[in-house]
């Protein structure tokens, strides 16, 4: 489930990136790289697990599935937080700078 959720996040971010390209003011590309990188790594984990468990890999226990989904959503949330921090620090639109220097 963690792999699946991360892949969905990566695909959604890639579609958003493509739709807004070449402007990329929101730096969505960062999210794409992060989620695709993690997806590829978890894909290796999945292959190794499949090699060990066989068909049982596709029928996980409900508790494991819930825990994995919870982890997957947490990973997506962490990715979004990292992206937000990078976006605000780099401030490509100058919004943060304008807000901080506005003396009114």
């Amino acid at each position: 489930m963690t792999l699946l959720i991360t892949i969905f996040a990566a695909v959604i971010c890639t579609v958003i990136w493509y739709k807004t390209a070449p402007k990329n003011e929101m730096k969505v590309g960062i999210l794409c790289w992060m989620y695709w990188g993690a997806s590829l790594m978890w894909f290796v984990d999945a292959i190794i697990e499949y090699a060990e468990l066989g068909a049982e890999f596709f029928t996980p226990e409900t508790a494991d599935m819930i825990n994995d989904s919870y982890l997957g959503l947490s990973v997506v949330a962490l990715g979004l937080i990292i992206w937000l921090v990078i976006l605000l620090v780099s401030d490509p639109k100058g919004v943060v700078r304008a807000a901080l220097t506005n003396k009114k």
């Binding site: 963690t2 790289w33 992060m34 695709w36 993690a38 997806s39 990292i82």
Partner: peptide
């Protein structure tokens, strides 16, 4: 591109390991 894939993936996997 490779840096971003590796750093991004490692960061999220590090979180999984902490989890």
């Amino acid at each position: 591109w490779l840096n971003k894939l590796l750093w991004g993936g490692s960061a999220l996997l590090a979180f999984e390991h902490i989890w």
